[in-house]
């Protein structure tokens, strides 16, 4: 455990799909800068096997990054009945948008539902703040 602190946490590749969550939408209407919106936005939903692989438990934070940006968010188990290793879900928010590429391949439409990232154990690092 102590030794682990000095090793780099292993990174794993994921594809993130964004989705809408009514509680997060409701929190947004009330306050974009509030704790509730942050709590419901800075979340990544993963397959239970992937959570184990990352060496975290539900509620822990993970680093999610790619060439576009990096955010620290909280892990949740997706609870989906069909395993979805390698695919993770995030509610659409400034946190997920920190990871979306500006490159639209000439379409003008960002790949909001196909975000390729590397994920690792954040070892207690706090959730990224937005402004």
């Amino acid at each position: 455990m102590e030794l682990g602190k000095f090793l780099t946490a292993p990174e794993y590749g994921f594809v993130i799909v964004t989705y809408r969550d009514i509680f997060q939408s409701a929190a947004l209407e009330k306050s974009r800068f509030g704790e509730e919106y942050r709590k419901l936005s800075a979340v990544i939903k993963m397959d239970s096997g992937d959570i184990k692989k990352l060496g975290v438990v539900e509620g822990d934070t993970v680093v999610v990054k790619n060439a576009c940006g990096k955010v620290v968010v909280r892990v949740e188990e997706s609870g989906y009945d069909v395993p979805h290793q390698g695919v993770a879900y995030m509610p659409n928010s400034p946190w997920s948008n920190s990871l979306v590429s500006a490159d639209t391949g000439g379409t003008g439409v960002p790949k909001y539902k196909m975000i390729k990232v590397m994920v690792s154990n954040a070892r207690g690092e706090a959730i990224t703040g937005m402004m």
Binding site: R32, C68, P94, N97, A102, P110
Partner: peptide, 12 residues
Amino acid sequence: SDPMSCLPRSTA
């Protein structure tokens, strides 16, 4: 609207 929040950050 809030493009700073709904566009890719690097664009916004």
